[in-house]
Nucleic acid binder design. Sequence first.
DNA 1: AGATATTTGTTCGTATGTATC
DNA 2: GGATACATACGAACAAATATC
Lengths: 87, 87
Amino acid sequence: MIEFREDQPKWQQVAQAIRERIAAGAYRPGSRVPSENDLMQEFGIARMTAHKVMRALREEGAIYTVRGMGSFVSPPGGTEPPVVHTS
Amino acid sequence: MIEFREDQPKWQQVAQAIRERIAAGAYRPGSRVPSENDLMQEFGIARMTAHKVMRALREEGAIYTVRGMGSFVSPPGGTEPPVVHTS
DNA sequence: AGATATTTGTTCGTATGTATC
DNA sequence: GGATACATACGAACAAATATC
C-alpha cells in the first residue's frame, strides 16, 4: 500500500508506482498489468482514478490496452502493435 | 471554437452556443447533444464548467439528461417525460 | 447458442479544494 | 462574501469487448 502525500495527486502517485514496477521488471513486456479493479483494491482508489492512471501510462507508451482483456506492458521498442489473438 | 468574451462567464457563453444549435436544428428533438466530455474538448473548458452548462439547459427545459447515457434535446412540447427504450 | 463474469470505455452526479475576481 | 473556473476524487450507471462455462 502507498501512503499518499498531500502535495501530489493520487493518480500521479499510483502511476509512478506502476512505472517503477515496470522499470524494475516486476511487470514484464507483454504481460498483463493490474486491472483497474486491482488498482482500486490495492491502492484504495476509485475506479475513475484508476482509469486515469492507466490512460496516462497508455499515452506515454508504457502500456497498451485491449478492451475486455486488460492492459499490458509495451515491448521495449515501443510502438509495435499488440499481438491480438484472432484464432 | 469560440473566442470567449471577458464580459460574460464562459458557462453562459457555451450554453448560448448550444441553445443556438438547438434553435437552428443542428441538434434535433430526442437526439443526443454533446457530452460534458465533448464540451470540454470543443470549448477547452473544465468538466465542472461543462456540467454547469448542461445543468442550466436542463433547468430551462431545453434538454433532459439520463445518467450513463447523455443529454438529449427536449421535445417541442417541453416537459413530457423522456422516452426510455425498455425493449 | 446462451448465460455469466471480467474488463475497459464512457456517461452523468456530487463534493472538495484552490485560485481569482 | 459571492461567483467563476480549474483540478482532483469519489460514486453510480450504462455500454461493449472478451473469455469461460
